[in-house]
Design a protein around this nucleic acid. Structure first.
Lengths: 155, 155
DNA sequence: ACACGCTTGACAATTTGTACCATCTGCAAT
DNA sequence: ATTGCAGATGGTACAAATTGTCAAGCGTGT
């Protein structure tokens, strides 16, 4: 029950709603729709991708709202901004600790769930008073598709 | 001799120049200036911050050139794009493996050099054929300045 | 059902990143 | 040292991404 990511759709919505109430945020249709759209996806959409997703279902949504709500979701802790070398903000509805493989050629991001990476000894007291609350590892390299097409330059 | 990050300015420039030659790239004043500006900084500037840095010294530089050269530096392996949850591209002239502490409140990024984190067992064969070449850990939390001002909401 | 205040939508403004092309410059061959 | 060419730059224009503003709308507690 404490593991958000394993829960089914109904529970996820329940968690979202209770987090909203806890923070006295109104349960608007927009927030619901945006949270749904994000948490249903397995990939790591940009704000605009989420916007594209929902604008058919929710006619008249504003792009501004999508940006704003995604930000809210991150703030109340039901979504994350992910860390990859990409000039666009990307969001992740999977709150379970996990990591990412990012292809340096095509930019695709793959999830990596690996228990052995989830209990790193965070170096406390290292940087004058920084309080670490979470972490995520970004592996960079080449996905199989790009590996098979790349020609390494002869040195 | 194999450790780029510990070297002094003159060596860094030397490494930069030899990498350029190796890739048959012309040693232009712009490339030098941009590499200098980046590798002298301890933080993780955006492209525009680098541009602001050098446009006083190098009158007439184009913003386009800064974007272009930063990209080149990453390609030839003398700089990195860093992975933090930020919608702007950020660059790092420190090529030694290290990690980052990012404050979720103010967004400041601190370097974290910690040997014990530099030899993670990268889970091979995990994701159908992805070839891991490097990794970096992003710790998220609160810096000391923000910790002292934040009021935790009463639950 | 009512009123208050949080949210949204629409548009504008900014910021960030890319495309294009004429001009310039590093560099190697003379 | 001079020259010629390929690659690099500057600058404008453009596209994409994100943020600011504010009147109007909707969710919530009463």
């Amino acid at each position: 029950m404490s593991n958000v990511s394993d829960t089914k759709f109904e529970s996820r919505i329940g968690i979202f709603e209770s987090e909203c109430r806890k923070n006295s945020l109104a349960l608007t249709v927009q927030r619901r729709a945006i949270y749904d759209a994000l948490s249903c996806r397995k990939d790591h959409p940009t704000a605009d991708q989420v916007y594209e997703d929902i604008k058919s279902k929710l006619k008249g949504v504003s792009r501004t709202t999508v940006y704003r709500v995604l930000d809210t979701l991150v703030t109340i802790g039901v979504a994350k901004r992910i860390s990859i070398p990409d000039p666009k903000a990307r969001f992740d509805g999977d709150m379970q600790r996990h990591h990412h493989l990012t292809c340096m050629k095509c930019g695709t991001v793959f999830d990596l769930h690996d228990e052995s990476l989830n209990n790193l000894q965070a170096p406390l007291g290292n940087d004058n008073g920084f309080e670490i609350m979470d972490y995520s590892i970004t592996f960079t390299g080449l996905c199989s598709a790009c590996r098979s097409t790349i020609k390494y330059p002869a040195k």
